[in-house]
């Protein structure tokens, strides 16, 4: 009786070990093998449509980002602003320089009429 009981005990232990082993190693195998049989094979058209929807969603997002980037690039940046201010100051500075030179050094024809150049008139007479 005890011998038989011991044999049963060992048999139970072996069974448990086998079950554990099967659980650790064997289970994924059958599960993987079973899944295509459990579900009906997907409709290729539906799969394509799903992929298309996902792709076009992504594409739309990228288009949006591209448009935002383009709008961002067409907006003038700091560089252009300072370039323009520099142009304005430079052009008006050049104009003021030319004007001041013209005022300081009148052309020879008008030297006699210029009241600001008395020494030139004295030197000639």
């Amino acid at each position: 009786m005890t011998g038989c009981g011991k044999g049963l005990f060992w048999g139970k232990k072996l069974l448990v070990a086998a079950a554990l082993l099967a659980g650790m190693i064997g289970m994924p195998g059958p599960a993987r093998a079973e899944s295509p049989e459990a579900q009906p094979p997907p409709d290729p058209a539906a799969l394509l449509a799903e992929q298309n929807a996902a792709l076009s969603r992504d594409l739309r997002r990228i288009h949006r980002e591209l448009a935002a980037l383009r709008a961002d690039m067409s907006r003038p940046g700091l560089q252009e602003v300072f370039a323009g201010i520099g142009y304005i100051m430079g052009l008006f500075g050049a104009a003021a320089f030319a004007a001041s030179r013209r005022r300081d050094k009148p052309p020879p024809g008008s030297a006699d009429n210029d009241p600001n150049a008395p020494d030139r008139g004295q030197g000639r007479t």
């Binding site: 201010i85 304005i88 052009l91």
Partner: peptide, 13 residues
């Protein structure tokens, strides 16, 4: 001219 330059820059910006 300086005044014109400043107003031009203000208009530009």
């Amino acid at each position: 001219l300086p005044k014109v330059a400043v107003v031009t820059a203000a208009f530009f910006v």
